[in-house]
Design a protein around this nucleic acid. Sequence first.
DNA 1: TGCCTTATCGAAAATGGTTTTCAATAACTA
DNA 2: TAGTTATTGAAAACCATTTTCGATAAGGCA
Lengths: 144, 144
Amino acid sequence: MTASNRDDEKLKSEIRLRFHQLGQRFTQEREALLAVLLTTDRALTPQELYEAAQKSETVGLTTAYRIIETLTRIGFAQVILINGELRYRLCSPTHHHHMVCTQCQKVEEFAECQLEGLDYGSFHPTSHRVEIFGLCEQCQKGSS
Amino acid sequence: MTASNRDDEKLKSEIRLRFHQLGQRFTQEREALLAVLLTTDRALTPQELYEAAQKSETVGLTTAYRIIETLTRIGFAQVILINGELRYRLCSPTHHHHMVCTQCQKVEEFAECQLEGLDYGSFHPTSHRVEIFGLCEQCQKGSS
DNA sequence: TGCCTTATCGAAAATGGTTTTCAATAACTA
DNA sequence: TAGTTATTGAAAACCATTTTCGATAAGGCA
């Protein structure tokens, strides 16, 4: 189950590069956590990330929190508020928006963005966020 | 300092009506908290709401949390994630989006919405959220 | 108006997610 | 390979939010 609309190999090497530039080390723990993030298309809670990583490597919950913080700060992950919970997902660093399944927390990226031409008056925009909530194909079938 | 793009009097009577329909009482504490929410255009943390309400009435922090929960649940307030913090703002129940000042947390509503014509493929959208982040007019002047 | 029912209040305790601490460990560099 | 230092993780600290529960007051009704 690969996140189809992300180029995972490219993303991985970009992150490696960025870590190197920042003088950060590529530890086994980070490798395992990143592998989890790369192979899911769901937005995860730190707890979920931690649990999923246990399958391949012993990783502490603190370390899961730390990698999320780092990836978010350098732009390779984004926080999404789903059903009142903060969840995190690995993202391509290019401009995009999200389709979010509120049942399974799957997140699909999409590039179309129609907010460029709008008139914001005296407000000075610096960034924006568009989230489409709904049900993914699987969850439409699975439940009534 | 009134939130110019909300019809506060109308909103207040709508909320009163809704509370009545739900068998909820209109206490002095709720009155005070609602007054704060009606007279600010900023998104507030529960703590800030609590502190602001003290000026006119003694209100407990728990009560501030409770009114936020209720207003959010019945659609008269929305949560917004600003600089990693969850903040809440009274909103008109009609469809709209937000311009959010990341410095003073002022939130302006706007009605334009250009997401209707998009193709979501097999994804079944049920709602969406658009947030424009930036600096409001005052904060552009105030700081370099 | 005053009574009665019951929603609401709030202080305190409990909860639980997140961050900090710090000694041990392991990645990278020279 | 050795030395430097970023990283780890268990435990403690932190703190925002929720729960508890006895006291209070809102609002319906006689």
